[in-house]
Amino acid sequence: MKQAISINVNGADHAGEVEPRLLLVHYLRDVLGLTGTHIGCETSICGACTILLDGQAVKSCTMFAVQADGSNITTIEGLATNGNLHPMQEGFWECHGLQCGYCTPGMIIAATQIVDRNPNPSRDEIRHGLEGNLCRCTGYQHIVEAVEYAAAKKSGV
């Protein structure tokens, strides 16, 4: 039986009816057309599908859309403001924090949570925070530098 849900995504309200088994990542991509959130392993390991749910980074492949009813979600599409890249996006741009780009949306979302909780993270803390995000181009060094760039920019260094 379908369930009515209402979710705010990147500042816009969306309402509709969904099957309970519809995963949040499929709702975002297939119902709302927000394909920036990627599907990787589908088993809560790779982190490509990471979004912010009421400010918490979570894997949207391991959650049903009905569980997000009434919540505020931020996806990669919602980070830039007025055409200006978010400091984390700028960091990935400036530090070459991506090669193929597949893991990038999840990496950037998870990284914003790391810096929100710890404005001046060490390299070890960044790596620990990104344990739930896999990059198969193995470009981790540049990703860590991108997060450092964003942390410095955010704290005005």
């Binding site: 982190g47 990471t50 918490q56 980074a57 979570v58 998870a110 949570q113 790391i114 344990e131 739930g132």
Partner: peptide
């Protein structure tokens, strides 16, 4: 436990 996203949920 797991990773940051898993610990959040």
């Amino acid at each position: 436990i797991g990773d940051m996203q898993v610990r959040n949920k």
